[in-house]
Simulated scan of single mutants.
Amino acid sequence: MVLGIVNIKIINLINIYKIRLIVIGSGYLIFLIKKKKYLIDTNEKLLIFSYLFYFGMFLLSFIVHRGNASELDNPSRLILLLPLLLLFYQYQIRFKVLLYSIPIGSVIVGLVALYDRFYLNVPRAFSPRIMAIQGGDIAMSLGMFSLVIALYFLSKKEYRFTVFCLIATLFGMLGSFLSTARGGWIGSPFIIGFILFTYRKTLSKRFFIIIGSLMIISVVSISLIPKTQVISRINLAKNEMVAYFEKDRANTSLGARFEMWKSAVLMAKEKPILGWGQQGVIEKRKQQAKEKIIHPTVARFDHAHNQYLDDLSKRGVLGLLALLGILLMPLWFFIKSSKSHNLEIRSVVILGIVHISSVMFYNLSQGFFTHNSGNIFYFFLIIVFYAMIKTLNLKSENN
């Protein structure tokens, strides 16, 4: 009871500060435009356009399908976050703040997961506060960010911070494991491989062998602890796939997902351009279940547990293109910025690429953007990393 009240107060406090940031940013945007103190470059225009197009598709779907106003709640947040890009340009975030805050956040996430799982004895970490899958995915991202920062500190020969960030990496991964959210585990080997590959020229082979061995030993050790449920969740996934494809059993976690994906694809074939809309998808899925096209178990779900297929079924091909736009447009900017020889800029670039790539993996098995936590986490960090690169570029040019 007390914990629930504290959580509500924390959430309300976060919302108050978020609203204040939006109001301040919007006011400052108007001021800068009037004073002509801020020129929007091509990259920013493309980023802003992708955000506006994404929101515009929700608005178009709302109008065409006569949807509920609540459908515009989540996508509207990314529009309200855009003024922060200009605010961070004028009141710059210090690079060191980014370096220290992310690993600390990763450690805190891991400690919260341990508290949830071993003290509160909840089946899945983070579930007392937010959806466990979302919490687990965000924890994994923080762990991967911490690994990038660890390698930055190692390049600078700051070994104490390197060790701390490696510990933070394990805490973030631990948070993901304790959430039992398997979607966050799928992409992690690829993300880790990419991070190590990008630093291959600045770090010795001996280090890669040591760090690789330590991570493998740590992950295996965590997996073997019964309460983490890692091994049991992996075995369960294997059994559910066999049950679905060989025995046609869809009343399992993976089986239901496969049925929802089938449902979304069938809907997209019928209405490929603008989709069915939020309410239309719900009604159509019930109809499919009634006609025994899909298993009755999935009739109650309002999204496809795959962000790409969900957007395709609800907002059609245009909606899918809008989704890909908010992922690929900033990704293109980060990749283009990776040519910089400045170590700080390259580190933020890698953080941005890791951030987008991770979310793209999460979207395969989860509607990451159907939740407020996913929207704020993704779009806010894109703006932070983008503004940081622009700030560091300006400092580099002035030196």
Rank of each mutant, 00 (worst) to 15 (best):
I102P: 00
G193H: 03
L87Q: 01
Y386G: 08
N121P: 00
L142P: 03
L147S: 09
V230S: 07
R200P: 00
I30Y: 08
Q278M: 09
E397T: 13
L351R: 08
D310N: 15
F194N: 07
E246I: 02
S263L: 06
F88Q: 05
M57L: 15
K9M: 11
V298M: 05
G67A: 05
P83I: 04
L72E: 02
L84W: 00
I210R: 10
N251D: 15
I356K: 10
R346W: 03
I19T: 14
I216L: 14
P296N: 04
N306D: 04
V281I: 10
E397G: 00
T198C: 06
L312D: 01
F194Y: 15
I24L: 12
L87N: 02
D248L: 10
V219G: 04
M1R: 09
L327G: 00
E71N: 12
E246A: 14
G67N: 05
V349T: 13
Y38E: 08
L60G: 07
N121E: 11
S218K: 10
L99N: 01
W261N: 13
S223L: 03
L81M: 15
M388P: 02
F53P: 07
Q288F: 15
Q287L: 13
R182T: 10
L78Y: 06
Y38T: 08
R160W: 04
E44W: 01
F95T: 08
I191F: 06
Y119C: 05
K269D: 10
A268D: 07
F208N: 10
S155V: 06
R66V: 05
Y51Q: 07
S176D: 11
Q366A: 11
L254D: 02
V359W: 09
I40A: 06
I356Y: 02
G275Y: 08
L196N: 06
M57E: 12
T370Q: 11
K286W: 01
L327S: 02
K284T: 14
A299Q: 13
V359D: 00
S338D: 01
S179T: 11
S365L: 05
K157E: 14
A168C: 10
A181R: 09
I130L: 11
L328W: 08
S313E: 12
R206N: 14
Y378N: 05
L120I: 14
S155A: 05
G183H: 06
N306I: 10
L39V: 13
L343Y: 09
